[in-house]
């Protein structure tokens, strides 16, 4: 019985944690400065990773779409197929997993260390709401950074796709870019990007939850960092299934 109750109560605890984060997001005071600092850490400093990954993924996707579309003699559709794949799923998921790796580990370790060195208590002792100051700011920063990073990855992905294409066919960037947008609709572009806000929430909440509940000293910090990445990635991938279903329901056009 305990075997069942312990994980359930932990899950309930985590859900309450997430719910509290949502409530606190809208309740002043807003820790704007700290949010901006986190946005710098999460967003700006993830840019090189995301941009390079997007570019590389664009090249690889382009090579794959080329080899499949060539069989049907539909090379003209490569940019559009690439863009569709990027914008709907590949971009959001790749960015989600990369951020889960980089930022999830960062949050888990940083908050874990703050926990075991009593810095979180110290914040409370100087009359700062540590949940707001540490968790809400990180969550908001992550939710803001994700769509931006995804957009960046989508665009560098297109540039990568173009680079791969132009090496073969010499297509101009402008023609490629226009062609890329010839098929995607708002129903592909907007929900695909917006859903990464949910990814950002999941990553930040998971890592923060595991971070602030770190036990067992330095070893516990490492453990929290690892668990944050694993848990955030799994939650993100499973949540994506639900989100895709939801998007198809809300935007039937995107299912076509």
């Amino acid at each position: 019985m305990d075997l069942l109750i312990a994980p359930l109560s932990r899950a309930g605890h985590a859900v309450a944690f997430a719910g509290r984060a949502i409530l606190e997001m809208f309740r002043p005071p807003f820790e704007l400065k700290e949010t901006a600092r986190q946005l710098y850490e999460v967003g700006w400093r993830s840019l090189p990773l995301i941009a390079v990954s997007g570019f590389a993924v664009g090249i690889v996707l382009s090579m794959h779409t080329r080899s499949s579309l060539e069989r049907f003699g539909a090379e003209a559709l490569i940019p559009a197929a690439l863009m569709l794949a990027l914008v709907r799923e590949t971009g959001p998921l790749i960015v989600g997993l990369l951020v889960a790796g980089r930022v999830g580990a960062g949050f888990g370790a940083e908050l874990g260390a703050m926990k075991v060195t009593e810095q979180i208590d110290a914040l409370e002792a100087v009359a700062v709401d540590s949940f707001k100051f540490l968790v809400v700011t990180r969550t908001v920063a992550c939710m803001l950074a994700m769509p931006v990073l995804t957009t960046v990855a989508n665009f560098t992905g297109i540039v990568g796709g173009w680079a791969a294409e132009t090496a073969i066919s010499g297509m101009s960037f402008e023609a490629y870019f226009r062609s890329a947008f010839s098929v995607v609709g708002f129903a592909d572009y907007i929900p695909g990007t917006i859903k990464t806000i949910v990814f950002g929430f999941i990553i930040a909440i998971t890592a923060s939850y595991l971070g602030v509940h770190t036990r067992g000293g330095t070893q516990g910090v490492g453990y929290s960092a690892t668990r944050s990445v694993v848990a955030a990635s799994i939650l993100l991938i499973t949540a994506n299934v639900v989100l895709v279903r939801l998007i198809f329901f809300l935007f039937p056009e995107s299912a076509g």
Partner: peptide, 20 residues
Amino acid sequence: LAIARRQIGFLFQNAALFDS
């Protein structure tokens, strides 16, 4: 509680400085 804490200064046994 946060308001009450503003009149208290606390030195932690391990100092607990914000290391960032």
